[in-house]
Simulated scan of single mutants.
Amino acid sequence: MRLLHTADWHLGRLFHNLSLLDDQRYVLDQLIDIIDREAVDAVLIAGDIYDRSVPPASAVALLDDVLRALCSERNLPVVMISGNHDSAQRLGFGARHLRQAGLHILSDLADIERPVTLSANGVEVDVFGIPYADPEYVRSQLGVDVRDFDSAHRHLVECINTKRHPTRPTVLMSHCFVDGGSASDSERPLTLGGAESVAWEPMQSFDYVALGHLHGPQCRGGEHIRYSGSLLKYSFSEASQRKGVTLVDIDEQGVRHIEHRPLTPRLDVRILEGELDSLIAQGLGDPHADDYLLVRLTDRHAILDPMGKLREVYPNVLHLEKPGMLESRGRQQLDRERLRFSALDMFSDFFAQTSGEAMTDEQAEAMNELISQLNRDEETR
């Protein structure tokens, strides 16, 4: 049996206020092509189907198109779990009726002990799903005393372990932050304070663990415990990541082969760095000038409308940084510190810059008296 593991579609995502729906449709067409070309028997989607709990109608329509192509036109079973960006209740609407069509939506903790049994080419595989659930929700729904993400996740895995078939290969799907995983800027924190990670050790005994939440393809604790990564680069911190899907071959004895298959975006996400004139000259011959760009200008002098000039050759510059100017200002600040201005001199300079005129003698005298009084108060403390 060949499974395709994917996650973190984030349908309806905005990137610097720019809709990515056309980009998502472009790579989802590639995903369907991979399914056809590689004779995939079932699809696993490990959460964050949508980018927000109430997705736009266009995102819902795109998901409907993809699921129709998979379940109705190709008769492929699809198993999906809800992620922290999804509304579990909204995503799970009609789940009991949709099972007959081959769409299995696992978004209710009450169903975690009930596997989806996939069958293809004489092989049967049980798939269990743990939708995203914070400790408070697990505690209230299941009546167990769990206080953090790790203890909640361990409890859910233990519940599943008691229901595993003794001989049938078992796949676990979970939307979580596995300890030691490499995160990026576009992933919404699961909680404040950093206590959101879960251990990989309780999942070690499963034949394959299809994870969602982290956007970079990676493994934790073994090749069979892995994140497929997101469909697209959703932040500039992901610019170097190779996006794609994971193919998993499994038989009666367990996993036989795991392979990452890349997806090619309609427009890439890149970071360019250099002086303005050099970047403009480079852009004139850049075959991928329409990519989504973050530009870091190294010029150390002021430039009039650098964004406008860059967009003449790179129309999709979405963010501009000026580290060269910051370095220049830093040196100016050091020079000012070397002058060892008195407090009155520094205030006089500030007054002149903000008001546009120099302080009068009376104002200077009043400020000098105030500074002297503050100094005396400081010395007596």
Rank of each mutant, 00 (worst) to 15 (best):
E365F: 06
A195Q: 14
E136C: 13
Q363L: 08
I225G: 01
D148W: 09
M203A: 03
L284P: 07
R139G: 11
L272N: 06
L76V: 08
L370G: 15
D51H: 05
K243D: 00
G221M: 00
S240T: 07
V245W: 04
L62K: 08
E38I: 04
G274D: 10
V295F: 14
P56N: 07
T246G: 04
T6R: 06
L76A: 07
Y132A: 04
G122R: 11
A120M: 01
L247E: 00
E136K: 15
A199R: 13
D64V: 14
A69G: 09
K322Q: 15
V198H: 01
G283W: 11
H165E: 10
R261E: 09
D8H: 03
T360F: 03
V209A: 02
D65G: 03
F177S: 10
L263G: 02
V138A: 03
L192S: 14
R25I: 12
S107Y: 11
E312P: 13
L284F: 11
L106M: 08
G283S: 11
I280T: 08
H16I: 05
G102A: 01
D251L: 01
R96D: 14
E158K: 12
D111C: 02
G274M: 12
F177L: 05
L106P: 00
L370H: 14
D64Q: 12
F128L: 06
N84Y: 06
H215W: 03
A210F: 02
I250Y: 02
E369V: 10
R96A: 14
V248C: 00
K322E: 15
V209R: 01
S140D: 05
D179K: 15
D299T: 01
A39W: 06
R164M: 11
Y50I: 10
H16R: 06
L28S: 09
V295Q: 12
R68P: 13
D111F: 04
K243R: 03
L11C: 02
A57W: 14
Y314T: 09
L293V: 08
T360P: 01
G285Q: 07
R300L: 03
C219P: 05
A366I: 10
V198Q: 05
P131L: 05
H288C: 15
E201I: 08
A120H: 02
R381P: 10
P217S: 07
P265Q: 05
V123L: 05
G12M: 00
D29K: 14
G283C: 12
H5Y: 01
V125E: 02
V125C: 00
L304M: 12
G94N: 10
I160L: 11
D299V: 07
R266V: 06
V245Q: 00
H215A: 03
G181M: 10
E327C: 07
G122P: 07
G83V: 01
A152V: 09
S348I: 13
L232A: 03
L334A: 15
L156C: 13
E124N: 12
A358K: 15
E312D: 13
P189F: 13
V248K: 02
G122L: 09
L91Q: 15
L344P: 00
Y227T: 04
F347A: 06
I35Q: 00
P189T: 06
R154H: 12
C71Q: 04
H301F: 15
L63Y: 09
G212V: 01
V157E: 14
N368P: 05
L374Q: 11
